[in-house]
Protein backbone atom coordinates (compact mmCIF):
# COMPACT_ATOMS: atom_id res chain seq x y z
CA UNK A 1 0.00 0.00 0.00
CA UNK A 2 1.26 3.47 -0.87
CA UNK A 3 -0.13 6.43 1.02
CA UNK A 4 0.35 10.16 0.54
CA UNK A 5 -0.24 12.30 3.63
CA UNK A 6 -0.98 15.87 2.71
CA UNK A 7 -2.87 19.06 3.46
CA UNK A 8 -2.61 22.62 2.17
CA UNK A 9 -2.10 23.81 5.72
CA UNK A 10 0.69 22.96 8.12
CA UNK A 11 0.57 21.88 11.76
CA UNK A 12 -2.22 19.33 11.31
CA UNK A 13 0.04 16.43 12.32
CA UNK A 14 1.03 15.03 8.91
CA UNK A 15 4.44 13.94 10.12
CA UNK A 16 3.11 12.38 13.31
CA UNK A 17 0.46 10.54 11.28
CA UNK A 18 3.07 9.29 8.81
CA UNK A 19 5.56 8.30 11.50
CA UNK A 20 3.43 7.00 14.35
CA UNK A 21 0.12 5.92 12.82
CA UNK A 22 0.98 4.67 9.33
CA UNK A 23 4.59 3.45 9.20
CA UNK A 24 4.37 0.95 12.09
CA UNK A 25 1.21 -0.57 10.56
CA UNK A 26 2.51 -0.70 6.98
CA UNK A 27 5.39 -3.14 7.35
CA UNK A 28 7.69 -0.31 8.38
CA UNK A 29 7.15 1.37 4.99
CA UNK A 30 9.80 3.86 3.88
CA UNK A 31 8.73 7.46 4.48
CA UNK A 32 9.52 9.96 1.74
CA UNK A 33 9.29 13.46 3.17
CA UNK A 34 8.55 16.06 0.51
CA UNK A 35 9.45 19.02 2.66
CA UNK A 36 11.89 21.88 2.47
CA UNK A 37 11.13 23.91 5.58
CA UNK A 38 9.21 22.19 8.36
CA UNK A 39 9.72 19.26 10.66
CA UNK A 40 9.83 15.80 9.09
CA UNK A 41 10.02 12.29 10.47
CA UNK A 42 13.80 12.68 10.34
CA UNK A 43 13.47 15.25 13.12
CA UNK A 44 11.55 12.65 15.10
CA UNK A 45 14.52 10.30 14.85
CA UNK A 46 13.21 8.15 12.00
CA UNK A 47 14.87 6.98 8.80
CA UNK A 48 13.34 9.29 6.21
CA UNK A 49 14.21 10.00 2.59
CA UNK A 50 13.87 13.76 2.25
CA UNK A 51 12.91 15.32 -1.07
CA UNK A 52 11.62 18.64 -2.33
CA UNK A 53 8.48 19.23 -4.37
CA UNK A 54 10.46 19.59 -7.59
CA UNK A 55 11.96 16.10 -7.15
CA UNK A 56 8.63 14.53 -8.03
CA UNK A 57 10.12 12.60 -10.97
CA UNK A 58 12.57 10.84 -8.67
CA UNK A 59 9.85 10.12 -6.14
CA UNK A 60 7.55 8.78 -8.85
CA UNK A 61 10.25 6.36 -10.04
CA UNK A 62 10.98 5.25 -6.46
CA UNK A 63 7.30 4.54 -5.86
CA UNK A 64 7.08 2.35 -8.95
CA UNK A 65 9.51 -0.13 -7.42
CA UNK A 66 7.92 -0.39 -3.97
CA UNK A 67 5.01 -2.28 -2.45
CA UNK A 68 4.66 -0.03 0.58
CA UNK A 69 5.56 3.63 0.92
CA UNK A 70 4.42 6.75 2.72
CA UNK A 71 4.80 10.16 1.13
CA UNK A 72 4.66 12.94 3.72
CA UNK A 73 3.99 16.11 1.72
CA UNK A 74 4.83 19.23 3.70
CA UNK A 75 2.56 22.28 3.43
CA UNK A 76 5.35 24.30 1.83
CA UNK A 77 5.65 21.77 -1.00
CA UNK A 78 2.09 20.64 -1.65
CA UNK A 79 1.49 23.03 -4.55
CA UNK A 80 4.65 21.80 -6.29
CA UNK A 81 3.65 18.22 -5.53
CA UNK A 82 0.15 18.59 -6.98
CA UNK A 83 1.43 20.52 -10.00
CA UNK A 84 3.90 17.76 -10.81
CA UNK A 85 1.22 15.14 -10.27
CA UNK A 86 -0.87 17.00 -12.82
CA UNK A 87 1.94 16.80 -15.37
CA UNK A 88 2.51 13.06 -15.14
CA UNK A 89 -0.43 11.27 -16.73
CA UNK A 90 -1.95 8.87 -14.20
CA UNK A 91 0.61 9.76 -11.52
CA UNK A 92 -1.99 9.83 -8.78
CA UNK A 93 -2.89 6.22 -9.56
CA UNK A 94 0.49 5.23 -8.13
CA UNK A 95 -0.88 6.14 -4.69
CA UNK A 96 -3.35 3.76 -3.05
CA UNK A 97 -4.68 6.47 -0.74
CA UNK A 98 -4.42 10.18 -0.02
CA UNK A 99 -4.77 10.77 3.72
CA UNK A 100 -5.66 14.28 4.88
CA UNK A 101 -5.15 14.86 8.59
CA UNK A 102 -7.30 17.66 9.97
CA UNK A 103 -7.49 19.34 13.36
CA UNK A 104 -10.46 21.33 14.66
CA UNK A 105 -9.28 24.85 13.91
CA UNK A 106 -11.21 26.85 11.34
CA UNK A 107 -8.19 27.33 9.11
CA UNK A 108 -7.31 23.64 9.09
CA UNK A 109 -10.87 22.64 8.19
CA UNK A 110 -11.15 25.17 5.37
CA UNK A 111 -7.76 24.19 3.92
CA UNK A 112 -8.67 20.51 4.18
CA UNK A 113 -11.78 21.09 2.08
CA UNK A 114 -9.64 22.92 -0.49
CA UNK A 115 -7.19 20.01 -0.54
CA UNK A 116 -10.07 17.60 -1.14
CA UNK A 117 -11.29 19.85 -3.98
CA UNK A 118 -7.81 19.93 -5.52
CA UNK A 119 -7.50 16.14 -5.46
CA UNK A 120 -10.98 15.74 -6.92
CA UNK A 121 -10.12 18.17 -9.71
CA UNK A 122 -7.03 16.10 -10.51
CA UNK A 123 -9.27 13.09 -10.99
CA UNK A 124 -8.55 11.23 -7.74
CA UNK A 125 -11.63 9.15 -7.01
CA UNK A 126 -13.34 9.68 -3.67
CA UNK A 127 -12.67 6.20 -2.34
CA UNK A 128 -8.93 6.92 -2.25
CA UNK A 129 -9.22 10.25 -0.40
CA UNK A 130 -9.52 9.76 3.36
CA UNK A 131 -9.87 12.18 6.25
CA UNK A 132 -7.97 11.45 9.45
CA UNK A 133 -9.43 13.43 12.34
CA UNK A 134 -6.44 14.43 14.43
CA UNK A 135 -6.02 15.85 17.92
CA UNK A 136 -9.67 15.19 18.67
CA UNK A 137 -10.68 16.51 22.06
CA UNK A 138 -13.84 14.52 22.70
CA UNK A 139 -16.06 13.87 19.66
CA UNK A 140 -15.51 14.01 15.91
CA UNK A 141 -19.19 14.75 15.31
CA UNK A 142 -19.09 17.72 17.68
CA UNK A 143 -15.74 19.13 16.56
CA UNK A 144 -15.80 18.51 12.80
CA UNK A 145 -19.43 18.90 11.66
CA UNK A 146 -18.42 21.01 8.64
CA UNK A 147 -15.97 18.43 7.34
CA UNK A 148 -18.51 15.63 7.80
CA UNK A 149 -21.17 17.70 6.03
CA UNK A 150 -18.84 18.49 3.13
CA UNK A 151 -17.86 14.83 2.76
CA UNK A 152 -21.49 13.70 2.79
CA UNK A 153 -22.60 16.34 0.30
CA UNK A 154 -19.71 16.47 -2.13
CA UNK A 155 -18.97 12.74 -2.30
CA UNK A 156 -15.33 13.68 -2.94
CA UNK A 157 -13.83 12.17 0.21
CA UNK A 158 -14.39 9.42 2.76
CA UNK A 159 -14.77 10.81 6.28
CA UNK A 160 -15.25 8.06 8.85
CA UNK A 161 -15.61 9.51 12.37
CA UNK A 162 -13.87 6.41 13.74
CA UNK A 163 -10.70 7.36 11.84
CA UNK A 164 -9.61 9.59 14.69
CA UNK A 165 -6.51 10.20 16.77
CA UNK A 166 -7.29 11.78 20.10
CA UNK A 167 -5.40 14.60 21.77
CA UNK A 168 -2.60 13.10 23.79
CA UNK A 169 0.65 14.48 25.08
CA UNK A 170 2.38 11.23 24.19
CA UNK A 171 3.23 12.64 20.75
CA UNK A 172 4.88 15.67 22.30
CA UNK A 173 6.91 13.44 24.58
CA UNK A 174 7.85 11.11 21.71
CA UNK A 175 9.07 14.05 19.63
CA UNK A 176 10.93 15.49 22.59
CA UNK A 177 12.71 12.19 23.23
CA UNK A 178 13.12 11.34 19.52
CA UNK A 179 11.64 7.92 19.93
CA UNK A 180 8.69 5.85 18.69
CA UNK A 181 5.80 4.08 20.40
CA UNK A 182 7.27 0.72 19.36
CA UNK A 183 10.58 1.57 21.06
CA UNK A 184 8.78 2.76 24.18
CA UNK A 185 6.72 -0.43 24.38
CA UNK A 186 9.86 -2.54 24.00
CA UNK A 187 11.70 -0.67 26.77
CA UNK A 188 11.86 -2.79 29.95
CA UNK A 189 13.67 -0.27 32.19
CA UNK A 190 12.29 0.10 35.73
CA UNK A 191 11.97 3.89 35.79
CA UNK A 192 10.18 3.85 39.13
CA UNK A 193 13.25 2.29 40.76
CA UNK A 194 15.55 4.71 38.99
CA UNK A 195 13.43 7.63 40.15
CA UNK A 196 13.66 6.43 43.76
CA UNK A 197 17.43 6.25 43.54
CA UNK A 198 17.91 9.59 41.73
CA UNK A 199 19.49 12.45 43.67
CA UNK A 200 16.62 14.73 44.81
CA UNK A 201 18.33 17.85 43.48
CA UNK A 202 19.06 16.38 40.04
CA UNK A 203 15.97 17.96 38.47
CA UNK A 204 17.03 17.26 34.89
CA UNK A 205 17.38 13.52 35.52
CA UNK A 206 14.16 13.34 37.53
CA UNK A 207 12.33 15.13 34.74
CA UNK A 208 13.80 12.80 32.11
CA UNK A 209 12.96 9.65 34.09
CA UNK A 210 9.44 10.93 34.87
CA UNK A 211 8.85 11.60 31.18
CA UNK A 212 10.04 8.10 30.22
CA UNK A 213 7.77 6.59 32.88
CA UNK A 214 4.82 8.70 31.71
CA UNK A 215 5.55 7.79 28.10
CA UNK A 216 5.28 4.09 28.77
CA UNK A 217 2.05 4.53 30.73
CA UNK A 218 0.59 6.55 27.84
CA UNK A 219 1.96 4.43 25.01
CA UNK A 220 -0.09 1.24 25.40
CA UNK A 221 -3.58 2.79 25.26
CA UNK A 222 -2.44 5.12 22.50
CA UNK A 223 -1.12 2.16 20.51
CA UNK A 224 -4.52 0.43 20.80
CA UNK A 225 -6.33 3.60 19.80
CA UNK A 226 -4.02 4.02 16.78
CA UNK A 227 -4.75 0.44 15.71
CA UNK A 228 -8.47 1.23 15.73
CA UNK A 229 -7.91 4.51 13.86
CA UNK A 230 -5.79 2.79 11.21
CA UNK A 231 -8.42 0.10 10.65
CA UNK A 232 -11.19 2.70 10.38
CA UNK A 233 -9.14 4.89 8.06
CA UNK A 234 -8.77 2.20 5.40
CA UNK A 235 -11.96 0.20 5.97
Amino acid sequence: MKVAVLNYTGSVGKTVVASHLLAPRMNGAQIFAVESTNETGADLGLNVDQLRGEHFGRLFRELLTRDDAIVDVGASNIEDFLTHMMRYEGAHEEMSYFVLPVINTGKAQRETIKTVAALASLGVDSDRVRILFNRVDSSVEEEFPSILAYAAKSGEVQANPQAAVYENEVFELLADQRTTIAEVLADQTDYRALLRSAAPDDHARISQLSNRHALRALAKPVDRQMNAAFTALFS
Binding site: E79, T83, A117, S121, S146, A149, Y150, A152, K153
Partner: peptide
Protein backbone atom coordinates in the same frame (compact mmCIF):
# COMPACT_ATOMS: atom_id res chain seq x y z
CA UNK B 1 -1.28 24.72 -12.61
CA UNK B 2 -2.67 28.25 -12.41
CA UNK B 3 -6.22 26.85 -12.35
CA UNK B 4 -5.18 24.46 -9.61
CA UNK B 5 -3.76 27.29 -7.52
CA UNK B 6 -7.08 29.14 -7.75
CA UNK B 7 -8.56 26.44 -5.50
CA UNK B 8 -6.62 28.10 -2.68
CA UNK B 9 -8.79 31.20 -3.18
CA UNK B 10 -12.06 29.32 -2.70
CA UNK B 11 -14.18 30.69 0.12
CA UNK B 12 -15.39 28.00 2.49
CA UNK B 13 -18.16 28.89 4.93
CA UNK B 14 -17.72 26.36 7.71
CA UNK B 15 -20.72 27.66 9.64
CA UNK B 16 -23.03 27.11 6.66
CA UNK B 17 -21.67 23.58 6.26
CA UNK B 18 -22.11 22.92 9.98
CA UNK B 19 -25.72 24.10 9.90
CA UNK B 20 -26.42 21.97 6.89
CA UNK B 21 -24.83 18.93 8.50
Amino acid sequence: PGDLRKIRDMRVDLEALRREG
